[in-house]
Amino acid sequence: MFLVFKDLDPILHSQLRLAVMSLLMSVREAEFTFLKEKTNATAGNLSVQIQKLKDAGYIDVIKQFKENYPQTICKVTPSGIKAFDQYVRNLQAYLTK
C-alpha cells in the first residue's frame, strides 16, 4: 500500500480534484457551474481545488464575462493529460499486482 501512495500523483489523488480532472478529460472545456453540478461540491471547495490544479499546470482557467455575468471556464492542459494518463496507469499497475 505504501508503494501505491508513493507512486500516485498527490495532486490527482484527491476525490474532488480527480473528479474535476476526469470530467475535463471527457470534454473540451467546461464552465465552473457544470463542474459544480456534476461533482456536487460547494463553490468554495471547488474553487480551492481548481486553483490547486491550475497551480500544478494541469488545467487552464479562463475568467471572462458572459452577458454581464462572470464566467469561469476550465480546460485540461497537455501536461494535465499526461499526468492523468500516468495516474491511471499507476492505478492499473497497482490493481494488477
Binding site: H13, Q15, L16, N40, Q49, L91
Partner: peptide, 10 residues
C-alpha cells in the same frame, strides 16, 4: 463531494 484520499479502487 468530500476532499479525502481514496483507495485505488475508489
Amino acid at each position: 463531494m468530500q476532499d479525502e484520499n481514496l483507495s485505488p479502487q475508489e
